[in-house]
């Protein structure tokens, strides 16, 4: 490069984004406050039994949330993910008696394929993800209900293939839940060290710039939905193991908590901002919220209201208004 005299440009002063920092610390603060409230009400909360219960109820939510996170990072949403997990439990219950562990793999392959198809349709036909996955939601909930006869299917033969998920313990804590936390950490690290680790973020923040730099947004978007399908399947396996059954609506009630976990952790619904550790914190908040509400004596029937309000509030806090033009 020639060293011709370069004229000066306006000086740049690092602007500290106070609001951004506050929002990024907020989830952790909320979690700490929740833990403090609960322990003050129930001193035995720190005991091993309640931590175990907490982790067990968090694991499927965290799995669903991690899958959804990839999609939300790209600026989209997958509304069909919980239904896909339910559908997965039905498939598992039907397949596991004959296929055993192979049935688990087949089910995971199926849910992954569902995600792949979602991503393919959205990326190739260039349609809004919420509406495409709303259609998928109907499709797979209908299929799940139809093939299960709208009833819960007990898993007895072949349960060994998934039984370890609930049975194995490490230091009295469920191994499976710990593994899910490890998965979250691995994802977080991968996003840092992989050369393409920031690709999901880049789509969410600047899809056109990425495209015009030769990035394959189609492939990355399909990958996000495919991962969402895979993680939905994993959540399904976990639920089926803990319930010892498959059911066409088994995971449906986790849709809202899982989306809430993603956004409350600080991943913006507009895409591009967030990560796996944030999602982990979000999932912890969601389960703590449930425990916390009952600890302070709130009727469990208020739970849905809290989820609804929390999800809207979290979206309001994390949304980046400068980057959305016409909001539909």
């Amino acid at each position: 490069m020639t060293q011709t005299l370069l004229t000066s440009s306006p000086r740049v002063i690092e602007q500290i984004d106070w609001k951004g920092r506050a929002v990024s610390i907020l989830p952790l603060a909320v979690l700490v406050v929740l833990v403090l409230i609960v322990t003050s009400q129930q001193p035995n909360f720190v005991g091993i039994a309640s931590v175990r219960g907490l982790l067990e109820s968090m694991a499927p939510i965290l799995l669903l949330a991690l899958g959804q996170m990839f999609v939300i990072l790209t600026g989209g949403i997958d509304l069909s993910f919980a239904v896909t997990a339910s559908f997965g439990t039905v498939l598992l219950a039907l397949w596991i008696p004959e296929l055993g562990a192979l049935g688990v793999l087949a089910m995971l392959a199926t849910t992954t394929l569902i995600g792949l198809i979602n991503g393919f349709v959205i990326a190739k036909a260039q349609i809004p993800s919420f509406i495409a996955t709303l259609g998928a939601l109907g499709l797979y909930s209908g299929l799940g209900l139809a093939i299960s006869g709208a009833s819960t299917i007990r898993i007895s033969t072949g349960y060994e293939a998934i039984g370890w998920i609930t049975d194995l313990r490490v230091a009295q804590l469920p191994l499976s839940a710990l593994l899910v936390i490890v998965v979250a950490i691995v994802i977080s690290v991968a996003m840092r060290v992989l050369a393409s680790g920031k690709s999901f973020h880049a789509i969410g923040l600047a899809e056109k710039a990425l495209l015009m730099s030769g990035g394959s947004t189609v492939r990355i978007r399909i990958l996000a939905f495919t991962l969402c399908g895979l993680f939905s399947g994993l959540a399904g396996v976990m639920l089926a193991a803990s319930q010892r059954s498959g059911g066409p609506t088994l995971a449906d009630s986790l849709q809202l908590p899982a989306i809430a976990a993603v956004v409350i952790g600080g991943t913006a619904i507009t895409g591009g901002v967030g990560g796996a550790i944030k999602t982990l914190i979000g999932a912890l908040i969601i389960v703590m919220l449930r425990v916390g509400l009952s600890a302070v004596g709130v009727d469990p029937s208020f739970e849905q209201i809290v989820y609804g309000v929390v999800i809207i509030a979290a979206v309001v806090l994390t949304i980046d208004r400068s980057r959305i033009g016409v909001v539909k």
């Binding site: 349709v121 036909a125 349609i127 809004p128 509406i131 495409a132 709303l134 259609g135 998928a136 939601l137 109907g138 499709l139 797979y140 909930s141 209908g142 299929l143 799940g144 209900l145 139809a146 709208a150």
Partner: peptide, 16 residues
């Protein structure tokens, strides 16, 4: 239940 599935498919096809 198959109808719900078909309705879902219809939405996707319509928007595509």
């Amino acid at each position: 239940y198959i109808q719900t599935a078909v309705q879902g498919l219809v939405i996707v096809i319509a928007v595509v």
